[in-house]
């Protein structure tokens, strides 16, 4: 149900370590916001676009991943045409689209596992301060992935129960029972986790 946005492939960008890609993304976002010059932004946009399209995604899939964000950018650009000078609007569109394409390329070439390794490293300072435990974050993440299909099945059962009684399927009458039924499991799940000593307490 929750398939990662990672794309199998052997491009050179796949082989770049995740940390390098994330640092590059951060640096790119700073660099692109520092300039308004189309002579820098246009090449950045073209390079990001070429990079993204060279990853082995089918064109339709590639477009659908960034389509919604591009749509927002174009709407805002259309509004901006009435409010700010045209060169600035062009700079804005190129800059944001370049950034979004590069970000989509990073997402498409890094596995969940590789990302989690980086997240764990980023969480280390917080762990040292005693604010949280990196292992807990991994556990919570695993729980979410484990329970999404269950909760979705529960939603469908509730919708089915509505239809069986001739009631319209309204979120208002489903959300309440869905949340209560799901959260009532919390005690059992917590007991199961503690019984297995997953959190070493």
């Amino acid at each position: 149900m929750l398939t990662s946005l990672y794309v199998e492939g052997g491009s050179w960008f796949h082989r770049v370590p995740v940390r390098a890609k994330l640092v590059a993304l951060a640096l790119l976002s700073i660099a692109l916001f520092a300039t308004d010059s189309p002579f820098l932004l246009l090449p950045a946009f073209l390079l990001s676009g070429w990079l993204y399209l060279s990853l082995g995604l089918r064109p339709r899939e590639a477009l659908s991943r960034v389509g919604f964000v591009f749509f927002t950018i174009l709407i805002l650009a259309a509004v901006n045409l009435f409010l700010v000078p045209v060169p600035q609007v062009a700079a804005l569109v190129l800059r944001l689209m370049a950034l979004v394409l590069f970000a989509a390329a990073v997402t498409a070439t890094a596995t969940i596992g590789a990302f989690m390794d980086e997240v764990t490293i980023l969480l280390k300072p917080l762990e040292r301060l005693g604010l949280l435990r990196a292992a807990d974050v991994g556990l919570a993440l695993g729980l979410v992935l484990r329970f999404v299909p269950d909760i979705f099945a529960r939603y469908q059962a509730l919708a089915e129960a509505h239809r069986a009684r001739g009631l319209p399927v309204r979120p208002l009458t489903i959300i309440g029972p869905l949340i209560i039924l799901t959260l009532k499991d919390a005690d059992t799940i917590a007991a199961a986790i503690d019984a297995r000593g997953f959190r070493r307490q």
Partner: peptide, 28 residues
Amino acid sequence: LLLVLLVAIGLPVLSGGRGGLAVLAGPS
């Protein structure tokens, strides 16, 4: 925070199957 983490590591958890760093880099 956990949901944003799921988005950032590339799971399509937002409505309409959106997710990944591209959504975070966009205007919204």
